[in-house]
């Protein structure tokens, strides 16, 4: 958990806030600030929406990749360290 720079940097502040990395104290300060600052409010809204989208963009590993990795490890014996 980290604090927040009290300089006005909407991009950085939104990034740490949306990532949930602010200390409790910094969160309180920033949330109070958000109510008065259109720039930070807009960046946080976009950051939240983008984070949800990024989470939705997961392409799961193809079926069979895990089996291939297991086989690779088991078949490689000790040859890798020879």
């Amino acid at each position: 958990m980290i604090g927040i720079k009290r300089v006005h940097d909407p991009e950085r502040n939104a990034a740490v806030y949306v990532s949930g990395e602010l200390s409790r104290r910094a969160t309180h300060w920033f949330e109070a600030h958000l109510l008065d600052c259109d720039d930070c409010w807009r960046e946080v809204a976009l950051g939240r929406a983008g984070k949800r989208l990024a989470e939705d963009a997961l392409e799961p590993a193809p079926a069979g990749l895990r089996d291939r990795l297991r086989a690779l490890v088991r078949l490689s014996g000790t040859s890798l360290t020879d």
Partner: peptide, 29 residues
């Protein structure tokens, strides 16, 4: 965490914060 991502990417944490936020914003827009 952005600190872990910074270590993995070999860049300062501030750079990761900026990349993460710009990426999120671009997707949302």
């Amino acid at each position: 965490t952005t600190a872990e991502a910074a270590r993995a990417m070999g860049t300062p944490r501030g750079t990761v914060l900026s990349r993460v936020h710009r990426g999120r914003r671009a997707l949302a827009v």
